[in-house]
Amino acid sequence: MTSGVDIPLRHPAPDSEPERPTLKTIAAETGLAVATVSRALKDAPDIGEATKRRVREAATRLGYRPNRAGVRLRTGKTNVIALVLSTESDVMNHTSQLIYSIANALRGTAYHLIVTPYFPDQDPMDPIRYLVETESADAIILNQTKPEDPRVRYMTDRHFPFATHGRTDMGIEHSYYDFDNEAFGIAAVEALAAAGRKRLLLVPPPRTHSYARHMTTGFVQAAGAHGLAFEVLTTATSDSGGTAIEEAVMEHLANSTPRPDGLLCGSTTAAMAAVNAAERLGLVLGQDFDLVAKEAIRFLHRFRPDILVVHEDVREAGDFLARAVVAAVERRDTPAKQGLERPGSVDRGRDNKGGSS
């Protein structure tokens, strides 16, 4: 005999999500204590690399993602590293490598990367103030530093962890990684002098940036030491954009007597634009003029094999900066970490076996 009342059986909805993996789930999977799993995911120095790898692999396999709201409530941290970039950066060659290398260095750690851009008509302090005042990130990495950089002073005064891609001249000890652009300027002039060039032209970075001063100093000192005539382009910078650089260089070459026969460019975009400008005037690279540039991705020799190229290891820079800010977040008494990359040899593509690189 039945009561005539249907009691529905409770089945999970067919499209319901499985239970979200937790630290306990990973601990059960690996046979480790929850505390060990937690510290391994935070890249704690007292946990062995084999254990960290085992925990990370299990976390990836299980689809584990930390509950960031819970993490912030427990620790006051966001587990976010913010990379603040100008939209004027050389995205094709330089910035893309920086983003990749920082993100790659943070893989397998408790931290993830966000990229915060700012625009030419915007105060560079705006994104810094927002990130610090809203506590949207645990640390900031920024580039295109100035000798007197208000962003550096602001974060230093507030004891906010940060690192810079580039140096400052403020008497403030802080973490940075930089390419030795003064040494690059010297090496470039020496390569042009060795090629027999007598009248040099620098297409400099924006003059407000620290590395512009470094590059210009090396260029001027080396040109003077070799007794070479030299000029610094004033109508465009290496960040002006391809069209603006091309027009400025073409006008300068067309109206200069005698004409520069050795060019030094502060970016990949500037190098390509300058070559185009010279060729529009009927000049031949490697015959009528030589050009030296630096690049982060090996590309310029595929554009023109006769360009003289110095490679900048932006991947190493990104890895260094990521580790520096994580160390600052987790061990605030750690001394500032600083690195300086010396430029390698100047390379002409046609000198390599098999032609261009």
Rank of each mutant, 00 (worst) to 15 (best):
M1H: 10
P8N: 13
R10F: 11
P12Q: 15
P14F: 09
D15I: 08
I26R: 03
I26N: 05
I26K: 03
A28H: 13
E29D: 11
E29R: 09
L32G: 10
V34W: 07
R39L: 14
K42T: 04
D43W: 02
P45R: 12
G48Q: 10
R54V: 01
V55S: 01
R65E: 03
R68V: 01
V80D: 01
D90N: 15
V91Q: 13
Q97T: 08
I99F: 04
L106W: 00
A110F: 00
Y111A: 01
Y111H: 00
H112D: 04
V115W: 00
D121Q: 05
M125E: 04
E133L: 03
T134H: 05
T134N: 05
E135Y: 00
S136C: 01
A139P: 02
I140G: 02
I140Q: 04
N143I: 06
P147Y: 10
E148F: 02
R158K: 13
P161E: 04
P161T: 03
T164W: 08
Y176L: 12
D178R: 06
F179P: 11
N181R: 05
E182W: 08
I186L: 06
A188C: 13
A188L: 11
A191G: 09
A191E: 08
A191N: 06
A191I: 07
L192R: 12
A194P: 03
A195N: 15
K198D: 13
P205R: 15
R207G: 14
T208S: 11
A212D: 08
M215D: 03
T216Y: 06
T216C: 08
G218R: 08
G218W: 02
A222P: 03
A223G: 05
L228M: 12
G241F: 12
G242P: 09
M250C: 12
S256E: 05
R259H: 05
G262N: 14
L264S: 07
G266A: 14
A270E: 13
A277D: 03
E279A: 01
G282P: 02
G282K: 00
G282R: 00
E295A: 11
E295K: 08
L300G: 13
L300W: 11
H301D: 15
R304V: 05
L308V: 10
H311T: 10
V314C: 09
R315S: 10
E316A: 15
G318V: 03
A324V: 06
V326I: 09
A328M: 02
E330C: 01
E330L: 03
R331I: 02
D333H: 04
Q338V: 14
G339E: 13
E341F: 12
R342P: 06
R348C: 14
N352D: 09
